[in-house]
Design a protein around this nucleic acid. Structure first.
Length: 221
DNA sequence: CCGGTGATGGACT
DNA sequence: GTCCATCACCGGA
């Protein structure tokens, strides 16, 4: 068994934390038992400096956890039905966090299947941020959970992912400024990495006009 | 495998 | 009213 990552791990630049989280196992003990997910895809959100971040327009009730200390879980509700989870990073005074986009269930797979009856294959259990959150049993009540306090949530130190297996590219589902910055990291040759999808523009493009240059999707070897 | 689209509610303009 | 850091399902190739 591996010990939990300490708070100092999260109290660093969000890009470094995101990359270093790849390959680590997030464990959450909830009703039904413990489920562990090995992270294969993450994204960095740079707080108030980042137009795509929930923290861009300042602190609100929903995003208050992002402004708090690193090592806590920020869970938000979206599209009227889905929960997604982030791990808050440092330094103190910022509102930066890493979105957990995809992973592979490595513990409690029977419980994960029970929570995700729509998944036809195990590789789809935690493929996508809302699916991953469902597997781990996260919901609104999980917002603010401390991953560094020896409680129901922890991120196992394990072994860092080999650098040669790490890829980086644009974030998924993000439009506008910041859409093309390479703030998404994933592990190559992982079937659980979610499919790349560029963010929709805020307004429909005018008919007949050339508008934005298309963003090349990251190559998936 | 792929693209199109409905679901469903809260946050924000 | 519009926009979501999305998912599941459907039909076509």
């Amino acid at each position: 068994m591996s010990r939990a990552l300490p708070r100092a791990f999260f109290d660093r630049d969000v890009a470094d934390v995101a990359r270093d989280l790849l390959g680590r196992i997030v464990v959450h003990e909830a009703g039904g038992g413990a489920v562990g997910v090995r992270l294969t895809e993450v994204e960095a959100y740079r707080g108030e400096e980042d137009p795509a971040s929930h923290a861009f327009r300042g602190m609100r009730r929903r995003n208050a956890t992002m402004f708090g200390p690193p090592g806590h879980l920020y869970v938000y509700f979206t599209y009227g039905m889905h929960w997604c989870a982030n791990l808050v990073c440092g330094p103190a005074g910022t509102a930066r966090a890493v979105l957990l986009r995809a992973g592979e269930v490595v513990e409690g797979i029977e419980e994960a299947r029970a929570r995700r009856p729509a998944a036809r294959r195990d590789v789809d259990l935690a493929r996508g941020p809302a699916r991953l959150a469902t597997c781990l049993g996260f919901d609104g009540g999980s917002d603010g959970l401390d991953a560094c306090a020896g409680g129901s949530l922890r991120v196992l130190a394990g072994a860092p992912a080999p650098a040669e297996g790490v890829r980086t590219g644009p974030r998924v589902g993000v439009a506008g400024a910041g859409a093309t910055s390479p703030w998404r990291w994933w592990l190559a040759a992982e079937p659980s990495v979610s499919v790349y999808r560029p963010g929709k523009p805020r307004r429909r493009a005018a008919a007949g006009g050339e508008t934005l240059a298309p963003v090349a999707p990251p190559v998936r070897p």
